[in-house]
């Protein structure tokens, strides 16, 4: 499904060179629910951006759904994002001037669906997240949890192969966080691969698979435990 081999990503500025990802390796199979954790600055977000084709990378090989996306054009990566990937963000990132239906419609517009198909998918997606009655509301009129559910609906409407979630519960209280988490689990059960970046140890514990990133590299659970006992990293306990 997703295969990253020896991915490196270097941010170059006038003065410093930051290695955000180095020799990064990760394999995710179809249907998995992977939680990515790690200390801030470890490269979690960079990983997500690279995985979601929002940013390129300096070195390595990245196969997405069997396709090598190491050097796709900007246009092509936009198309892949549109068709195969759904994004969920900590800050929801709904477009405040568009009502819920219109927000969910955005990716469908870019894919060129006709209005009938858009309507069908929007309704279906809202149904899935349990907000079918709020079609005409504007995002600011909703609670944080509801907004995040809309964002999830927007990500689902395109029927993507996998979802990338960046701290989806970060801005929510614990009750809402649990609801959103349950929703994501349901979606995963229905067959969508999910990769989620989070700080929350409780969420991390619920996942099938837990990946930690430290200093731009994947630490599998055991090696992480070791390194933890020798050096004292500031990562949250797993």
């Amino acid at each position: 499904m997703l295969s990253m081999k020896n991915i490196s990503k270097v941010y170059q500025s006038e003065l410093v060179e930051t290695h955000a990802l180095r020799e990064f390796n990760l394999q995710v199979s179809e249907g998995e629910f992977v939680v990515v954790t790690g200390p801030s600055g470890s490269g979690k977000t960079t990983f997500l951006n690279v995985a979601g084709l929002l940013e390129g990378f300096s070195q390595g090989e990245y196969l997405l759904d069997g396709v090598d996306v190491s050097s796709v054009s900007d246009n092509e990566s936009a198309r892949i994002r549109n068709e195969k990937i759904g994004f969920i963000f900590q800050g929801f990132n709904l477009i405040p001037d568009l009502n819920l239906a219109e927000n969910i419609e955005v990716p469908l517009r870019y894919r060129g669906f006709d209005s009938k198909e858009r309507k069908r998918r929007v309704e279906q997606a809202l149904e899935q997240v349990g907000l079918a009655s709020r079609l005409k509301h504007l995002p600011p009129q909703l609670s944080g949890g509801q907004q995040q559910r809309v964002a999830i609906a927007r990500a689902l409407a395109g029927e993507p192969r996998f979802l990338l979630a960046d701290e989806p519960t970060g801005n929510l209280d614990s009750l809402m966080a649990r609801q959103v988490m349950e929703l994501l689990e349901n979606i995963n059960q229905a067959g969508t691969t999910i990769i989620m970046v989070t700080h929350d140890p409780e969420l991390a514990r619920r996942a099938q698979r837990n990946v930690q990133i430290v200093d731009g590299q994947v630490c599998d659970f055991t090696s992480y435990q070791k390194s933890r006992s020798t050096t004292s990293t500031t990562a949250e306990p797993a």
Binding site: G52, L54, D74, N75, A78, R79, I80, R81, N82, E83, I85, F87, N93, L94, I95, V106, P107, Y110, R111, R154, G158
Partner: peptide, 16 residues
């Protein structure tokens, strides 16, 4: 720009 960022993430091409 933030809104455009979202649109780009969701799959809008530069041309769009």
């Amino acid at each position: 720009a933030p809104e455009v960022g979202v649109r780009r993430a969701i799959g809008a091409s530069r041309r769009q």
